[in-house]
């Protein structure tokens, strides 16, 4: 197999898959930070929740994870609305830092509940190994990778359509730009907040399903992704959903490509440390340009 194909099969494609997952998570984090003005620490665990909801659907119906995806997204969106109603809304008019504490509490409550309901064993959507599809003799793409990357593109197009073509989507961007002006303009903030939770949670659920599909399901999977997702949102600029998409892709690709033997034959970075790339990028951004590449907002 040629070097290029090795690069594509083992570095570029996994990078795109990881980037898709980060991007989907980061859009929600960025929107919530932009509109509700706080870092949502339960976002990773919402991803876990989505993944486990899909697991139940897959287990009950024996369906492909793709078919379970919409149900997991809807289920997670509904639960997110409930969480907002009972645990975040009481603080909407208060200091947002209390919301960070509340969301941190929610993160661990969600994870605890997932462990009570689904147990702590490692799970997966399918049994057995699926063969990759082979193109041009040697370009091997796992079927699930095609689904993951393809669905991410579709979901991003939907997000784009929502944010630029629908009244509520435009209002979300308006509130993110200036909450004060949005209120003075007569935009009902509470409604926009609900829409934000539904969109953010649905995308988080999708990201969670994709992680579970690509690897396996663990109750800590979402929490462990929180750092790269925040890093993606910061890289793209807080409150900028398109920045979050790009940021997620950049960090996903950077993590996978950092282990390619660019110089000599050894991996440039030991694979065990590739998730540290996200942290490094984030630290650089915080020092050099906290507003992000697309000039979001610094709070």
């Amino acid at each position: 197999m040629g070097d290029l194909l090795i690069f594509v099969n083992f570095y570029l494609l996994p990078g795109l898959v990881l980037g898709s997952i980060y991007a989907l998570g980061a859009i929600g984090v960025s929107l919530v930070f932009g509109i509700l003005r706080f870092a949502h620490f339960a976002h990773g665990d919402m991803m876990t929740l989505g993944a486990y909801l899909a697991l139940t659907v897959v287990a009950v119906t024996g369906a492909n994870p793709m078919l379970a995806l919409p149900l997991a997204m809807i289920g997670t969106a509904i639960i997110a609305l409930g969480i907002d109603r009972w645990f975040y809304k009481p603080f909407h008019d208060k200091s947002t830092i209390v919301l960070v504490i509340a969301s941190f509490g929610i993160a661990l409550m969600l994870r605890s509940l997932i462990r009570v309901i689904w147990g702590v064993e490692i799970e997966s959507y399918s049994v057995g190994i699926s063969r990759p599809l082979v193109f041009f003799d040697s370009l091997r793409i796992a079927e699930r990778h095609i689904w993951i990357i393809g669905s991410t593109v579709v979901l991003m197009l939907i997000v784009h359509w929502l944010l630029t073509r629908t009244r509520t989507g435009k209002a979300m961007r308006a509130v993110s730009d200036s909450p004060e002006l949005a209120r003075l303009t007569g935009i009902p903030t509470e409604r926009v907040i609900k829409a934000t939770w539904m969109l953010g949670a649905a995308l988080a659920a999708a990201a969670g399903v994709f992680v579970g599909w690509d690897t396996q399901l663990q109750t800590t999977m979402g929490w462990n992704l929180l750092l790269p997702i925040f890093a993606s949102a910061i890289l793209g600029g807080i409150g900028r959903p398109y920045g979050a998409m790009a940021g997620g892709m950049v960090i996903g690709l950077a993590e996978e490509l950092s282990t390619y033997p660019w110089i000599g034959t050894e991996p440039l970075l030991s694979p065990g440390y590739k998730t540290g790339i996200a942290f490094a990028i984030m630290v650089v951004m915080l020092i050099w340009r906290p507003a992000g590449l697309l000039r979001g907002r610094v709070y």
Partner: peptide
């Protein structure tokens, strides 16, 4: 790095420390 930014950024960076440490302990 973070002290000048809002508290949220410090919080994010502190989970980063825990995460990096986890990697070191593992590797």
């Amino acid at each position: 790095i973070c002290i000048r930014l809002r508290s949220d950024y410090l919080a994010i960076a502190t989970i980063g420390i825990a995460e990096i440490l986890r990697l070191i302990l593992k590797n």
